[in-house]
Structure formats: C-alpha cells, structure tokens
Design a protein around this nucleic acid. Structure first.
Lengths: 162, 162
DNA sequence: CGTAACACGAGTAATTTACTAGGGTATGAG
DNA sequence: CTCATACCCTAGTAAATTACTCGTGTTACG
C-alpha cells in the first residue's frame, strides 16, 4: 500500500515546477538540488512525466523543464499514475485489467472497487495548484519550518536525507 | 500503492473462516487448499492474525483456526493492518510516525493526510460480514461463476493460479 | 566551438516479497 | 500409549521490485 519514493520525489518536482510556472524552464541541477537527490535519478522521473505530456523540455544552455499546463489544470492523479505506473491498489480493478487471477479474491472485489473509487476521487479532485497553495501557506505561517515534522520547508533544504 | 498478495490471501482466508463462523475450527490444509497455496505460507499469515487477536487456534486432531469475534464485528482495516504491517500510504501519516524524512515532501502532506483518511474510512467501515454477504450473493446470482472475471467462485477452486 | 543542459539505455546494489524447508509441540482417537 | 493430525516457529532462499548510478550521445545558446 506504500507510495514509492519515486512518486514522492516526482510529485515534489512537479510542485517545484508549478511554483515557477510561467517564468521559463527550470534546470535539472536546480530541481535535483532542491530535493538533495542525484540528477540522474530525477531525470528518469521527469522523462516519464515528459512522455506523459505533463512537462515539456527546452534543450541547450538556459534550458530545463516546465509544466505543459497550468497547475490548476493538472491533477495529482495524472502525475502519480505516470510515476507509479498505475494508481490501482489491486490489478483487477485497474482500467485496462482483463479479469482476475486467483490472488484477486472475488469475495473482496466489491471492497477493492469501493476503495479504489475513493482513492481516485481524492487524486483526481486534487490539483497541483492546491499543493502549491498548501505549501506556500504553510511556509508563511510557520516561518520556514514545518509544524508537523519540524524540518525546513524552504525551497532549498538540500541534503537532509534520512 | 499495490496491496501485497499476502494481504489478499490473508483476507480471503478470513472470509473463508467467516463463512464457517460458529461451526468449529477449520484446518490449515482446508484453508490452503481452497486458495491453492502452500500450507506453510498461509500458516505465516494466520500466525500474524493470531498475534493480532483476530483468529484463535485449536491444536491437535480436529483442530484448526476460527475467528475470535463475529464477522460483523471485524473490520477489514483490522485484518489488513495486521497483514500489511500498516495501511499507511506514506510513513509520515502513520499513527506512530514521529515526523518526516526528506522523501516525505511537506508540500504533499495535506494531500497524503486526506487520502489516508478516505482510505481508512472505507477500511474501517467495511466489515468481514459484508464481504461474506457480497460473496454469497454473487455466488447465488451467477451460479458459481464470477461475472467479472469469469472464473469459478466456488469454495474449492484449487489451483487456478496465474 | 565550447559548455550547459536534456536524452537514453544499461547495469547494479539494496530492499522487499513471496515463498520453501524442516524440526518441534499439543491433542484426540484407536 | 502411541500415532496421526494439526498447529508452532525459525531460518533460509529465490524472485521481483525499487532505487538508484554510469556512460555516452544530442541539442543549442553565447
């Protein structure tokens, strides 16, 4: 049931791009630096997002990544399904599923369908813009420190990894 | 985001026990046979459920496993959190979490909290009895064949693994 | 033309998952 | 009383997934 770190890093990168939406491309070194992860790794994630039409790229010097559409037009569902492959909790409730294996116990299928439906509701209804708003609000209120985790939420926290 | 097969097998076993609730213990060979999986594997899952107080055991000949409480009193949440370890989609929204790591991007935390809340709603509100009802209803209506997957949903399908 | 920056594929290390194996202990039936 | 049935427990392992790294190529601004 856990979300991959891939999804968490990728989603964060999209929020970082959303914050700068409209002011030109942001380079990979910048984006990777903000999360304190390697450029090579983040690049793979951004490549998936490019394939999926979420981000666009500008090559050459002063190039970088930028969002294709406005953050308010971009759902979390779209981003996560590209990063995660699928947001289905079990294969047999996935969109392009063609039935069940034995591990998909039919007795639990109604449960899984309901669960998936609720999850999709949240992911589809939440836009990247809302995450940006939450983020900036949080930053304003708690003076660059997250009230919950006690860590800096400034745009450049760099290497505070586990 | 995927549920482990561990959870799927374990949940199915609980439903199998719920169907026979009140009519004495069910042996491991019986339960494992119904799902077409090894006894050794299913035993591990049942042991977790015993530790968690969901099932009880009777040793010796004619022994087996049985539910501690009525299926209508047992939530899916309780079963899955024992099997899965936790039903949290990210560690930092888990009950006994003491904060975030860098991978828990603070900008997405409000989203994760909302998502987790919706998931918990469904898992806590759904009882094992409901799964039993869905199952028997399905069985009655479609004459031992699941309408969705086309496979048998009879109590002894045995080895129709992937 | 040189440097900054994206593009891509392959390879690897670590972790998790999904099991298997085998010996031990309790208990009811014959 | 003993034997077969059935739970109890630990350890090990194979496969799959995840989380990366590396190297080389391509594009384009200054």
């Amino acid at each position: 049931m856990k979300l991959s770190t891939r999804s968490k890093y990728g989603l964060k990168a999209v929020v970082d791009l959303a914050i700068r939406y409209g002011s030109g491309p942001v380079s990979l070194p910048t984006l990777a630096g903000e999360q304190g992860i390697s450029e090579g790794y983040l690049e793979q994630l951004l490549r998936e997002l490019k394939k999926g039409g979420v981000v666009d790229t500008v090559r050459g010097a002063q190039g970088g990544y930028e969002l294709v559409c406005a953050p308010s037009e971009l759902s979390v569902q779209r981003v996560l399904s590209l990063l995660e492959g699928s947001t289905a909790v079990v294969d047999c409730v996935d969109i392009d599923s063609r039935g069940c294996t034995s591990a998909c116990t039919c007795s639990a299928r109604p449960l899984f369908l309901k669960l998936q439906s609720r999850i999709n509701d949240v992911l589809e209804q939440t836009t990247i813009q809302e995450l940006v708003d939450d983020y900036t609000e949080q930053k304003k209120r708690y003076d660059r420190t997250c009230s919950v985790c006690g860590q800096s939420v400034s745009p450049v926290p760099a290497k505070n990894r586990e």
